[in-house]
Design a protein around this nucleic acid. Structure first.
Lengths: 343, 343
DNA sequence: TCGAATTACGCAAACGATTGCACGTATTTA
DNA sequence: TAAATACGTGCAATCGTTTGCGTAATTCGA
């Protein structure tokens, strides 16, 4: 029967008639232990497949060394973009010897605070987080910083805090996408965006506006709407299409919304992309499923995750100065498919 | 300036002129400490927001108590079903005071072994795992069991091991779906399945076969194919549709494959569902994006995750006997949409 | 052949918490 | 008044490692 109890240095020491200190040194290949003893001990350890107790190691080192567990806070898990980011974080972290502890805030401020506390208690070496939509107070994040736990934001960043962050290039992504619409002949491009309280919403709108300007067009307020999901898109699009000066193109803040627009427009009998062009933002699973396939801005969540983990690990290991706020922007890429015309 | 160093019991003891033991007892509300001291100490702790060092607690208790960290191994992260399962695990775990440590195997056996070792070292209290496609040896899992770390499988279970597991009811799910196809008038139902080495493949095929039998039909081998992704589906479906006795319905092992079939069939000019019915399995994001929307078997990943976490926690906390292999089957649900006819 | 330098190891404290036991003081009982 | 009972607290060991320091044994140079 297996004893279940792990083999410890003490056991090895007893068995070999040496002190625990000697075992410890031998296993860490300290030259202060004779070659012979070292090999004897190492062999014994190997044969009985000893491995150190991480908990004890950590306790001993808690003063100097941080743990190797990264806390990751995600607003939701069943979501293409967040999955991709998580995937990127996992890849980068695991390849550099870190583990990730994942928690989901469900977009709730209270839960976010709980999670932060729990992670602090559990001594993560740092936290990668996208704020809940709910969150408008930041003391929990400040607590963490004060406790010496580095923080990296992604996607939804906290503008009030001068913290490290990784975001996609919403401005250029949108600018390029809208430029593409205009350059393929569209003149009345509608914009469906998220509420302007979010940074990403503002940046995308600015990209839209500047793309119009660049091509000598003006923003027409009647073509700009707050709408970031399919249900709303299906609700408001019919009226939009019945305007006397109806839009000949739509830019949507995400693929889901774009799909909503597409389904309405098709149902109303318009040809996509000949009569109406549509462009989304994400390039998730949905984009290749609809008919025609969706032209969209690829958000590269995987890359965002990798950069975030890279920054955090840099902060933890001291490659980046602890008080430094590293800000990275991940470039997007326009993926042209069937819902827009080709040049 | 913040000292960065956490407040410890020793600090409190020094500050209040008592012993560490007294502090410990006071904070755990032991009646052996006088009411007055207890309150004094508790208040001090609260005011200086003391919280115990989890690492030290764990070390002290390592003999008796397991940690509260659950290891979760996922073949891939950017995947609707696995995301849903992860979501379910997270919900159940966090509501019961457990954390989850997530690692992705990338469908690789070697990586899976590494992860198991790393999790064992890091003293997770148990592991929830879906095997990599690669995995054909199970010693790493047996090691874990031998070390007293409970294991729960989901989705891809290990038939060679008598371990706890949660799977969806592939047999009944498929049976009901195929029955639906037949009952809405289809007579030649094609079956696109995964390689038969996988349990889920066998179970789904059996469901298909028995649904046919139940309705007095026979399995026609020319209608059964190994095909579990979109690219393959688009490759093999045209030939299928050109047979003189072409299928009038398709059952696909997942939504992605079903979408592939749909796009081919539509392109070939058939009307869906009037001339050809299609049914998938998953009910992920894709299902409501295609046109017409996909009839599919809902796999309820979220529920699978919750059940898996529930079993694991039961095992850890002793509600379930440690050597017991709990096997649960999550019922599926047929979601009828536009790619099949209504009664 | 003797002191110095080197080598190889052990002792013990530390990390932060828990807990069995003993001890001193105050209160009760005979 | 002496002995028995609480009661409240501290001591010290423990969990598994690491590491500064001390020291015995060995080797070296002169």
């Amino acid at each position: 029967m297996d004893d279940k109890r792990q083999l410890t240095m003490k056991d090895i020491a007893r068995e070999l008639g040496v002190s625990v200190a000697t075992v410890s040194r031998a296993l860490s290949d300290s030259p202060s232990i004779s070659r012979q003893r070292r090999q004897e001990i190492q062999q014994f350890a190997r044969e009985h497949n000893y491995f150190p107790n991480v908990i004890a190691e950590q306790l001993r080192h808690s003063r100097r060394n941080p743990s190797r567990a990264i806390g990751v806070i995600v607003p939701e898990l069943v979501h293409y973009y967040f999955s991709s980011i998580l995937d990127g974080i996992e890849s980068e972290a695991s390849s550099r010897g870190y583990q990730i502890i994942v928690a989901k805030s469900n977009e709730s401020y209270e839960r976010e605070v709980e999670i932060c506390e729990s992670m602090l208690r559990n001594k993560v070496c740092g936290i990668i987080v996208s704020q809940a939509k709910d969150t408008e107070r930041y003391d929990h994040f400040e607590h963490l910083e004060a406790a010496g736990v580095p923080l990296v934001f992604y996607d939804r960043i906290c503008p009030a805090l001068n913290a490290s962050r990784v975001v996609v290039d919403d401005y250029m992504g949108t600018m390029n996408a809208v430029s593409h619409l205009i350059e393929t002949g569209c003149r009345r491009v509608a914009f469906y965006g998220a509420p302007m309280s979010m940074m990403i919403a503002k940046n995308r709108f600015n990209g839209y506006r500047d793309a119009l300007y660049k091509h000598g067009l003006e923003v027409d307020e009647s073509l700009v709407r707050i709408c970031d999901n399919r249900a709303d898109a299906e609700r408001i699009t019919p009226a939009m299409m019945r305007m006397q000066d109806r839009p000949d193109a739509f830019f949507a803040v995400n693929d889901e919304t774009a799909i909503g627009i597409l389904s309405v427009v098709k149902r109303m009998g318009y040809n996509v992309p000949d009569e109406v062009s549509i462009c989304g933002f994400t390039n998730g699973f949905r984009a290749t499923v609809c008919d025609p396939m969706l032209t969209t801005v690829e958000q590269r969540g995987n890359q965002v995750g990798k950069e975030a983990a890279d920054i955090l690990i840099g902060l933890v290991e001291g490659t980046l100065p602890h008080d430094h706020a590293e800000k990275r922007i991940v470039k997007t890429r326009l993926v042209v498919r069937g819902t827009t015309r080709h040049l």
